[in-house]
Design a protein around this nucleic acid. Structure first.
Lengths: 194, 194
DNA sequence: TCCTTTTTGTACTAATTAGTACATAATATC
DNA sequence: GATATTATGTACTAATTAGTACAAAAAGGA
């Protein structure tokens, strides 16, 4: 209850770190660069994040996913047609600006960018993607129960199908942002949600 | 027409480099590690690959994709049912050993692992994926013309749909190799090829 | 005011990075 | 066999990396 006061808020600086990691990638984002963006010095950083860069990255993954999930759950909760909301959510991917198209999914990137040495961090990313998947699964299960979805496939399979679509689009559009056919691919892919 | 003979074959050492880049990722694969696997010293390496690590990587992408395309085109050429061959090709992803599932697609990885500084290398990867896409597109167009494919969607859209599926699976299965539902997701995704 | 506690900024370190310089080795040609 | 040519191996460099050490600063409590 004493001592010099912190000059930064942890959530805020982690958010700044997300930006850097997202645009540069985990390996390529240097500690100096991160600290610069976060606006704190090494002294403060290594005191607050004893695990260094890796701890910062894991916290950034968790914080990002947490916010994403909360937002999605909220949007779903106020929606009259959750299945349509999911469709819209995917269709919106085709309208993102090129800069965003090139960045991919913050969590999915972790799965592909981390080397074999970072198995534990990869596991976190997998778990976080899994939680989005189960949000999808729940929406689908409920819609099926309420006879709002004709497709009788297992909700778990449809949920994984959607995450797979998400992962695919986030790689595909990197290679050709704004490609004319992306919208049609998405429409074709979402026909399973009938 | 003179001079000390090379102790290595370029295609062979590039192939060794593919292994290292694939398991470790572009950034994480160090030059020393690569040279070690390739079995040559720095002198030989920087003489043969004046562009250093980057040139090696680009050559490895091209060589890998070239072999992949040739194999696929050959398999298609001797197949009675090319559309079914593509289906089998995708379904086989579910049976890969865990080690292979974790590695993703060699070309797709490049799209996600390269930072903004390597735009030119990214473009190469995009072009190489594009050539696989056009192989798919051609097969589909032909099958439609021969009335062997009922789906009337544009071949270009179906081709991109398939590349998108490929990209998705190669990310998704990293997060949960051997996941029970992958096979069902693939079956669901391939129903467009009816 | 002085003491304790915590944070901060800076200077430093030790390791690793990609890449270069260059003397030497191995061949073909004349 | 001498010479030109190309390849090789080693020793080196310069930059960058993540992370540490530590003295000074800024607060609260006695």
């Amino acid at each position: 209850m004493a001592g010099r006061p912190k000059i930064f808020d942890e959530r805020e600086v982690v958010e700044k770190a997300v930006d850097v990691f997202w645009t540069k990638g985990y390996e390529t984002a240097s500690a100096d660069e991160l600290l610069d963006a976060m606006g704190i010095g090494k002294g403060s950083f290594y005191l607050a994040f004893k695990g260094g860069k890796k701890e910062l990255y894991e916290k950034s993954l968790r914080q990002y996913a947490d916010r994403f999930d909360k937002q999605l759950l909220h949007d779903l909760s106020v929606s009259k047609d959750p299945v349509q909301l999911i469709k819209d959510f995917f269709m919106a991917l085709a309208d993102d600006p090129k800069s965003k198209q090139m960045k991919g999914c913050y969590i999915g990137n972790a799965l592909v960018q981390l080397s074999d040495g970072d198995v534990d961090t990869k596991l976190i990313a997998a778990e976080l993607l899994g939680s989005v998947e189960s949000i999808f699964t729940d929406v689908i299960r409920k819609a099926q129960e309420e006879k709002k979805l004709k497709n009788k496939a297992k909700p778990e399979v449809l949920g994984k199908y959607l995450i797979n679509l998400w992962n695919g689009v986030n790689v595909t559009r990197r290679s050709n942002p704004g490609y004319e056919h992306l919208r049609e691919v998405l429409e074709m892919s979402l026909q399973v949600l009938h």
